[in-house]
Amino acid sequence: MADGHAEHGHNEALEGTIGHVSNPATLVKVLITLLALTGLTVAATYVNLGRLNVIGALAIASVKASIVALWFMHLRYDKRYNFFVLVSAFALVAFFIGVVLLDTTLYQDGITEYRAQHPAAGK
């Protein structure tokens, strides 16, 4: 991004500072972007797109989470292994939920049928 160049242009870091020092303008721009995306996700609920509503909301949330991780959490400037720790955690979550969802809707008809035949069960 264009910011990268500007940040190298005037490095405020004190001599010998460990780590990357965030530019105040960048931090404020990141917050404004996050607030705008929050507004967008609220506005999107007023449009009925069926299943696309959930997918869109999750997509916007993922973009917001990535922005927080890359700039607020310094991952853009950090050691690569920290990045891989975060990405592998999210990959495991996706795998976990994905595998569980593979067959989760297959049983509901059976449950509904059983409930209809045994009205007293489970109450």
Partner: peptide, 29 residues
């Protein structure tokens, strides 16, 4: 220290994943 913190945060994400999974299953059904 930072790598240790990231490993802890990965654990936090997996910790919450169980609840997100419950959410996905119940909302799907």
């Amino acid at each position: 220290a930072k790598l240790g913190m990231w490993l802890f945060l990965a654990q936090e994400i997996l910790f919450f994943a169980g609840l997100f999974c419950a959410y996905a299953v119940y909302r799907g059904n």
